[in-house]
Amino acid sequence: MHILIVEDELGIVQFLKQGLQEEGYQITTASDGSKGFELIQSQKFDLILLDWMIPKINGLDLCKAIRIKDQQTPIIFLTAKDTVQETIEGLKAGANDYIKKPFSFEELVERIKVHFRNKKQTENLTLGNITMDLTRHIVLKDEEEIAMTQREFELLAYLIEHKGKVCTRNQILRDVWEINFEYDTGVIDVFMNAIRKKLNLKIEEDYIKTIRGIGYIAND
């Protein structure tokens, strides 16, 4: 998951970037609202951590600008502003959450996980003519439902969520199987073969490619 941090205090940026990268997140940073808005227009982020008091475009105005074109990406305010009126103002601007500085890093990580879970539960995933309805937990190919086991569903969703990026077998074991120790990665190939067989992918439907010796990549 790709997180944008818009924050002008260098110490906080370095602290958050290192900690969140260790949690497995991809991090991009901006030190002012103008740069943050520029990044948001050119890249897709899964969550935004936004300070209120930042140069050029303040966090409140940036949040409003984001919401004009993007209603889905979770935004968490990180700020010293903590009056009831300021909290209400931030939420009305479109923020999903509000954490007062100084804050616990552990609490922030848990809140991020909650927003990602909520985001996943309301999204559909697509890959070519394949659609995954995460709310109803079904897979459709050309509008025909494809029956999959829980693990097959989770593996396919993971590859589509990381569309365009190579997913190594070890990453898949860690994030899908939740295995953080040495384990036979061959089990992933077994599940991938089952998924491909169920989807009955034709030659022109080369949506999931094997990267020999490394893992898999999904692409439209």
Rank of each mutant, 00 (worst) to 15 (best):
141 K>P: 04
19 G>V: 05
148 M>W: 10
82 D>H: 14
6 V>T: 13
79 T>P: 00
166 V>K: 07
84 V>W: 00
83 T>Q: 10
3 I>Y: 12
191 F>E: 07
197 K>V: 01
73 T>D: 03
47 L>K: 08
32 D>C: 09
4 L>T: 12
14 Q>Y: 09
91 L>T: 03
99 I>D: 00
95 A>I: 05
79 T>D: 09
121 Q>M: 12
185 T>D: 15
116 F>T: 03
127 L>E: 00
36 G>P: 12
136 R>Q: 14
107 E>F: 11
112 I>Y: 00
86 E>A: 14
32 D>S: 09
205 E>D: 06
14 Q>C: 01
156 L>T: 11
125 L>A: 01
10 L>A: 13
51 D>H: 03
74 P>N: 01
131 T>V: 14
77 F>H: 00
102 P>F: 06
141 K>W: 05
216 Y>M: 01
5 I>S: 07
207 Y>C: 03
22 E>S: 14
129 N>W: 10
43 Q>F: 14
109 V>M: 06
129 N>P: 06
72 Q>E: 13
108 L>N: 04
32 D>L: 08
4 L>R: 04
1 M>C: 08
169 R>L: 15
48 I>K: 08
129 N>M: 07
125 L>N: 02
201 L>I: 08
147 A>Y: 10
206 D>C: 04
79 T>L: 09
75 I>V: 14
210 T>N: 14
210 T>V: 15
111 R>N: 02
58 N>L: 05
119 K>I: 01
218 A>S: 11
220 D>W: 07
180 N>P: 04
124 N>T: 10
7 E>L: 11
193 N>D: 08
116 F>W: 00
196 R>S: 03
152 E>S: 05
103 F>I: 01
52 W>Y: 12
83 T>W: 02
120 K>I: 07
15 F>D: 11
210 T>R: 15
43 Q>D: 14
50 L>D: 12
213 G>L: 01
59 G>T: 12
145 E>N: 10
79 T>I: 03
91 L>P: 00
120 K>G: 15
60 L>V: 14
51 D>Y: 11
186 G>I: 08
74 P>R: 04
18 Q>R: 13
211 I>F: 03
46 D>L: 04
83 T>H: 04
167 C>Q: 04
45 F>Q: 08
160 I>P: 06
130 I>R: 05
42 S>L: 14
71 Q>T: 11
81 K>R: 14
193 N>T: 11
179 I>S: 12
69 K>R: 05
85 Q>R: 15
65 A>K: 15
185 T>Y: 15
15 F>W: 13
132 M>P: 01
3 I>G: 09
160 I>A: 09
18 Q>A: 05
35 K>F: 09
177 W>N: 02
84 V>T: 10
46 D>S: 13
73 T>E: 09
152 E>K: 08
197 K>Q: 11
94 G>W: 07
124 N>Q: 06
196 R>C: 05
138 I>G: 08
76 I>K: 10
122 T>V: 12
41 Q>E: 15
24 G>S: 06
156 L>A: 10
96 N>E: 11
100 K>N: 08
62 L>S: 07
104 S>W: 03
41 Q>W: 06
100 K>A: 01
43 Q>V: 11
56 K>W: 10
101 K>P: 07
12 I>W: 02
93 A>W: 02
30 A>K: 05
217 I>P: 02
178 E>H: 14
53 M>S: 15
99 I>N: 00
152 E>V: 12
203 I>L: 06
212 R>D: 04
206 D>V: 01
